[in-house]
Design a binder for these strands. Sequence first.
DNA 1: ACTCTCGAGTTACCGCTAGTAACACACGTT
DNA 2: AACGTGTGTTACTAGCGGTAACTCGAGAGT
Lengths: 213, 213
Amino acid sequence: MDTTQRTGQQRSADRRRRELLEAADRVVLRDGPQASMNAIAAEAGITKPILYRHFGDKGGLYAALAKRHTDALLDSLRAALDAPAERRERVEATLDTYLAAIEARPQVYRFLMHPSDGSAGEHGFDVGKHSAPLLRRMGEELAQVIGDRLDLGPGGRQLARVWGHGIVGMMHAAGDWWLGERPCSRAELVRSLADLLWGRLAAAGDKVGGPGF
Amino acid sequence: MDTTQRTGQQRSADRRRRELLEAADRVVLRDGPQASMNAIAAEAGITKPILYRHFGDKGGLYAALAKRHTDALLDSLRAALDAPAERRERVEATLDTYLAAIEARPQVYRFLMHPSDGSAGEHGFDVGKHSAPLLRRMGEELAQVIGDRLDLGPGGRQLARVWGHGIVGMMHAAGDWWLGERPCSRAELVRSLADLLWGRLAAAGDKVGGPGF
DNA sequence: ACTCTCGAGTTACCGCTAGTAACACACGTT
DNA sequence: AACGTGTGTTACTAGCGGTAACTCGAGAGT
């Protein structure tokens, strides 16, 4: 890869950094979570130590990479959450936005959430330490919105935090399962999850022949 | 390591396998997700190749280790789910059982769910590929129970699966967050999550001064 | 014009990992 | 006595994250 087409070196370090991140992105999209520092360096047309100078260590590069996607996703989610519509519609829009995102770039989100579950090899990114932040950030963000807008009485702030993390976890796990098995359309999944959040679990009747769940 | 204190070799391979698993368990409890094959072999008083003869590869050992804990946890959850009580009480009991389990052995469950998020070092178990099965199994199991007992009308089976995975994800994410921050008691967390499942999100009133969430 | 500095980039390495090949010893069987 | 067979070892490969030490080339100073 002859990336230095022009010997222009007035490129700031920031610009370089962005180039490296884009190269990393490409590799992650191609190789999935198996992307190695060597591969990323090669894709960027340079060698490892430069990567380390820019990002400190693998975690630093990962964090930078994750921040981009996380920020983008959070922006989308915020937009869905702020849409002028009924509460139920907003919830569905938010769920749908998240699911659409992981559907559009499954490898990226698999990379962000699931450490090295690619097809071959075993030495992948150790994402575990950093996958939490993504879910945590989403959880905290959602908690903020819930706490800001809903009147939950005393202790509502804490309740909102629990719910924020819980709902994000629900969304994540269901999305993950759905992405793997594709048992239904996205719309159906959204509807089902919203129904769950809307208390249909509590409202459902027992099946004939025994005590209910 | 003179492990052959007695030349007793009538020990069946199964017995040996269980010993190895127990050693692995000990190491995981001590070192967390950083446990390496070398460390486990050393703890068992043997060397690596034997581990590989018994478990094939790291994934095999991990799978065997995970199966033990997963089975045990699932048994507990089933018991809580089958207790003779109201639906809400059962849900709370199940949540509490899960949370009590991860509270009692945080390192084990961190190991099962989070790949290599230990304090130091970076080369840990690549659990990512295997953490899904645990959550998947719990999700499917819960889906089974929900589908068996609740009358959800047409498409109820699929709805139950979505809910199973969603609820498990909620439980997992909330538990994970709670274990890290301990923002409240276990009972409070259980109650908050059950409230969420019981539709309090939909029922809550908007806060004064703007449209609701 | 010559040197000096300095930063970008390289090669070559370390220590670690998962995983394997090849060898060594003790046992019950024929 | 000779022979597999199971159990264990040592010594190795290949690849990873990460780093030390070197090289090279562009500007600044005199």
